[in-house]
Design a protein around this nucleic acid. Structure first.
Lengths: 212, 212
DNA sequence: TTTTTTCTACTGGTTTTCCAGTATTTTATC
DNA sequence: GATAAAATACTGGAAAACCAGTAGAAAAAA
């Protein structure tokens, strides 16, 4: 008889925690050592306890799940980290994998698929659910172009443009010449590769520089 | 001994389903009759089976959870529908309650609170978790101003403006006079109470007329 | 069918943005 | 202290957007 596969589960939804625990406990040779609702607690635990697999959420209350994943792999390089998340954003999936996750599954994954995925991950495979694969294969325009690096002043002016201010109004608010504002405005459009303000605002929002 | 409180649970995440079932089954005098991952199946079941409480998600694959809630209350007006969701958007919370939900809880709710909430709902109370109450009490600017009613043509033109097209370009694409496009553009700005295109786009995105 | 809404299109004029290029000062960074 | 990056400011001209008001035709709703 071989050693059991040991688990730590991290998710801020107690219901999900309970569901996963129940599901894994029902499997032969698998054992849930501990469950946590915050990344901090989990990290503390993992400092002096080796495990085979970590199942973790992305939307944690304290740490970002992506950073957590990175920290876990630093502590225990051989552990398999499987991200189980509701987020279907491309950028988040990529960041997770970049930081050492062995797989990314959405929370609507069926139990049998989930168990199968865990086994695959233990064999060293990269586990991605079909839906996740589809998302990765279908990049949105904003994903392809890296967000331009904006200076502090540019961000400030961008925000004002989004608020519907004219060049003159912005100049007055910031105590600078309208001509200066125009220069910034022009640089912004160039950086975003657009030719007018509406396009600029759309891009700014899609790149999260301003909130809608 | 009184009759048990009967449950139907609807959630497209099998893990959540399992967790909730386990949690409720552990309570005295509570019984889960059935679980579903789609709204359609659940409605079919509820057509010939009375229950005390429905626990349901909002982000269902087939129906919108909000409509589902409405349908359920039509079938069984006395049933208590508790929405258990990840969405923390004001509009969704309001729509849920408007359509007959007896409560709205976020999925990170602790098990004991959840059980307590179910009991409160059964007593006829409106159950809102603290976080949900906070969201409802703190309206975003876009929530306060009702989204203007746009005509089909206006939406079309709005989309093109967001794409960075000029009036002339839009006119060419839609085979209409640039002057007509300008009229629409002006009406759009008036409807959104903004004075230029950047502001228009920002509002359009915040009101979900165009995607960022 | 009548009424209302939407889509269309115009006049004529003002304001703002957009383009291309340059240049000085200030602030970081090495 | 040297170098680079950012913020400031300008000229001058073209293009586009914005404002206010009007109005006929088509489509939808009553």
């Amino acid at each position: 008889m071989c050693e059991p596969v040991t688990f730590v589960i991290i998710d801020d939804h107690p219901v999900v925690l309970q569901g996963l625990q129940y599901m894994i406990q029902g499997q032969e040779n698998m054992e849930v050592l501990a469950c946590f609702t915050t990344g901090g607690e989990a990290l503390a635990y993992l400092q002096h306890q080796e495990v085979s697999v970590v199942l973790q959420d992305i939307g944690l209350p304290d740490t970002s799940g992506i950073e957590l994943c990175c920290e876990i792999k630093k502590l225990q390089p051989d552990v398999k980290v499987l991200v189980l998340s509701n987020y279907n954003e491309r950028s988040i999936i990529f960041e997770s994998l970049k930081n050492g996750a062995s797989g990314y599954l959405l929370k609507n994954t069926a139990p049998d698929i989930l168990i199968q995925s865990i086994k695959s991950a233990l064999e060293g495979k990269l586990v991605l659910s079909e839906e996740v694969q589809a998302i990765m294969a279908q990049p949105a325009p904003a994903d392809l172009s890296a967000p331009p690096r904006l200076t502090r002043r540019e961000k400030e002016i961008l925000q004002h443009i989004a608020d519907g201010c004219t060049t003159a109004e912005i100049a007055e608010k910031l105590f600078i010449s309208p001509l200066t504002v125009e220069s910034h405005r022009r640089n912004l459009m160039q950086k975003f590769s657009v030719s007018n303000a509406p396009g600029l605002i759309r891009m700014a929002i899609s790149h999260k520089f301003v909130v809608a």
